[in-house]
Amino acid sequence: MKKQFRLATLLVALGALMLTLSGCGKSLSQQDVLQNDRKANTITWGVKADTKLFGLMDVRDNQIKGFDVDMAKHITRHILGKKGKAKFIQVTSQSRIPLLKNGNIDAIIATMTITPQREKVVSFSNSYFDAGQSLLVPNGSKIKNVSDLNKSGTTVLGVVGANSVQNIKKFAPKARVLELQDYAQALTSLKAGQGVALTTDNGILYGMAVQNPGFKVVGGTFTREPYGVAVNKGQKPFTNEVNKAIKEMEADGEYNQLIKKWFGNVPGFNYKELER
């Protein structure tokens, strides 16, 4: 009797395991995120920690700093009031969508472009930043724009899960694309000569160029990459609140202040164009 019971428990556990692994499990994101966040007085954001100007870990105080992080703090304050807390979880381009779908985070604000493919799995707020894809190359590189990359034998570096990797495959189909884990790894790989150029959105690249005088951004922007806050499907009230917050920030000048704070001193970058 006892043995049979043990066997039954085991089989149930095994079945449950298979169920999880095959992804048949029910999504957690059925609850109303906005209500939960109001109750907890906290919004949990997924942010980058390796991307200068947007979300970069400051080694001195272990805080993530950047435009995305500040936007998240302001949006939180607009939605929850002055005492609302923003909690940050570090994500990569690869991990952000699974974490959102799983409910580990309430929203993604991590240099994420609004694209039709992604809109099939998540909902986006209105755009909160207008980026465009560009190239980072070493000073003295012969590469002037994206068409210079379209040769067999050229290697371009990108990041797993980034939209820019899909784009470059369209713009330079002959180039080989290497996808690294995150921007810190991709940049170090560029320095190590693992590729001739690193491609992603101009804002991120300018951030890298500021830190690394041996490198420059070339070729202008060859795509439009509007960044949006991603939330789970079916969270309309939350999305609406985010949109309202962005609009309020644009109206009262908070938005332009943040743009100036983060992009005002970036050489080669006209922050006035970004102001709204």
């Binding site: 499990g25 957690l28 979880i89 799983n102 580990n104």
Partner: peptide, 15 residues
């Protein structure tokens, strides 16, 4: 599987 899969079970471990 643990980080991305378990939450389907209702268990959302942090990192």
């Amino acid at each position: 599987f643990t980080y991305f899969g378990l939450p389907n079970f209702g268990f959302k471990p942090e990192i």
